[in-house]
Design a protein around this nucleic acid. Structure first.
Lengths: 346, 346
DNA sequence: TTGAAAGCGATACCAG
DNA sequence: CTGGTATCGCTTTCAA
């Protein structure tokens, strides 16, 4: 005896938070199959659908507020076009901000979706595993938080390109080398050339900045190696108190120059020195880095090391190339142009 | 005649990118079923697995470098713990940077994954649709790019909480109201109270900042409405040239005070005025906003409007509450504390 | 031109 | 305690 199967809806058809519409719902409403819905909504060129059908499908999709499910899509497709980068864990300057923005835009043009993954708990390889769960097609890692292990994890999880953006290359990954050591070297050299011999180097007390400050210090050291000049580490927190304390013992340090990590710390320190009656540059030369606007506005105008970051377009192109040819040898690019801008403070 | 089917690997088994290991691979290697793998790796308490089996599974997972596939997982589960926020499209200041960082950390503590979605192409409702594809459990939207339509799209796609962070509430979404109008009002009021009557208001020429600058201007207007004071719009790009040009015609403007949008524009303008010989505050009072460090370092010290952003923890708690009770009435919170810090420039 | 059906990878029932 | 198996939403052959 034949039974009539009656479809019992799982959720009350009335109102309330109805469940999320799927392509099956669209198909039902349009009176076509799910396949057809897919063809229509993806503008599939492999198959031709009649105009009336197309309209009915679009209509139905709009009516239901249908939005495709990215997870299902990429699960089926076997890949996504997501480029993942960890979100920076500390306040970043305008330089880096602009760089990220450009990059997102450029990758967007190439039809990638950029996602910054919130850096909360995991560190090192655990972080890499967390990123790998999203199966990004490419991963872009600033700083030096990723080791060869992490790269391996990402690649085994299907990442076709891993690009690091930091002081030194990581095995297996493309590297955009930002040679902060060179920044220090330029600054140190500049001060030495201007006749300074007792050089202080500011190291921010704030955590997370060692990645940059340590190589910058080392660069200054190298610049004066084998000369009679000395290098003194100065720890400075980004607060007026800290700067005032440092300035108070300035004369006892006997320094005639200081590389202040960046323009912001330079501004802080310079102000404290001036308040203490230390003449800049006569008594102590000051140089910063990053070439921020504020350096030009200070009096005396702040000498600085101008940094040239890679353009977003270039990086996007590198990523795209790497994605297309995952087997290629890792590229290695020196991307941090560092040049001294000599103004009045040194 | 019987044929022997030979499994031909799609990729050379030698080295090179072998395909991504799945839980089935782990199961095979450990000699158990996929179900068991799932139980073990998720520490499922609903079922007890023998210790030797657990070890074999873990061992196999480690050996293969297995990383679960987030898309498959959330597809099956029917939900994710992703909190999505659009990445800011323009360089953001340290205030906002720190806020984002805190928020990520706080949401991480609550076991959410925060993802900043790269703002490239789509605008308005299209952007909302793009976000909805990821089926985030919550969406956090700064600025005013989201309308009621967008909120509806997100909710229909399963977002249990939509929170806007901007000047005014949006129907259907929780709102963290940042009343930039009040910032302008405080500044305007302060200048008026100090006896100033011809007040200039700087509007950044840079695009994307109107969201903040327009209400700030309006706030100044309201502060002096019904008095004899006047308000003059001043357009200023963040470059020395632009500031110099403005300063050159300063005296012809006949202003005795200026609210400079924020501390950075204030610094730029103040320097230009001083170079032009305009005495601050005697001839023209200057006030900024954001209470950045640099204001304290300028001479005269810069008066400013101190902004108090919501703490990351509070916002995270709001999100969590909203996720647990999606039906609740949208909350509305005033979160931008604005107080004048009077220093020397006004 | 359209539809039926096979999976993508992981999970959670229900049997054994 | 462990193993089949149906299922999530979508794409894509293959047949009709």
């Amino acid at each position: 005896m034949p039974y009539v199967m009656v479809q019992i809806p799982k959720t009350p058809a009335s109102s309330a938070p109805r469940s999320v519409p799927t392509s099956a719902d669209v198909a039902r409403l349009a009176g076509v199959s799910r396949a057809t819905v897919s063809y229509v909504l993806n503008n599939s060129s492999a198959v031709r659908i009649s105009e009336p059908t197309r309209r009915r499908v679009h209509e139905a999709a709009r009516e239901l507020g249908y939005v495709p499910h990215a997870a299902a899509r990429s699960l089926r497709a076997g890949h996504s076009r997501t480029v993942l980068m960890p979100a920076p864990g500390f306040p970043v300057g305008p330089l880096y901000s602009r760089f990220i923005g450009e990059l997102q835009w450029a990758l967007g043009r190439l039809d990638y979706t950029v996602v910054q993954y919130g850096t909360a708990g995991p560190q090192g390889d655990d972080a890499a595993r967390a990123w790998a769960e999203l199966r990004p097609v490419a991963v872009l890692v600033p700083g030096s938080g990723l080791g060869p292990q992490g790269v391996e994890i990402l690649k085994r999880s299907g990442a076709r390109a891993v690009v690091t953006l930091g002081p030194e290359p990581v095995d297996g990954a493309h590297a955009l080398l930002m040679d902060h050591e060179a920044v220090g070297h330029r600054a140190g050299r500049h001060l030495y050339d201007r006749g300074r011999r007792r050089i202080g180097v500011v190291l921010p007390a704030e955590p997370g900045l060692e990645v940059f400050s340590a190589p910058r210090l080392e660069g200054v050291r190298r610049a004066v190696r084998g000369t009679d000049a000395t290098v003194t580490e100065l720890h400075l927190a980004y607060e007026e108190h800290s700067a005032a304390r440092l300035a108070a013992r300035w004369r006892s340090l006997g320094l005639d120059a200081v590389f202040a990590y960046n323009d912001e710390y330079a501004m802080l320190l310079m102000r404290a020195l001036q308040d203490e009656g230390v003449a800049v540059p006569a008594e102590t030369a000051v140089i910063g880095a990053d070439d921020l606007m504020l350096g030009r506005l200070l009096r005396p105008r702040l000498s600085t090391v101008h940094l040239e970051l890679p353009s977003g377009r270039e990086l996007a192109a590198l990523v795209d190339r790497a994605v297309h040819d995952p087997g290629a040898r890792p590229e290695r690019h020196e991307v941090l142009g560092a040049t001294v801008v000599h103004r009045e403070s040194s």
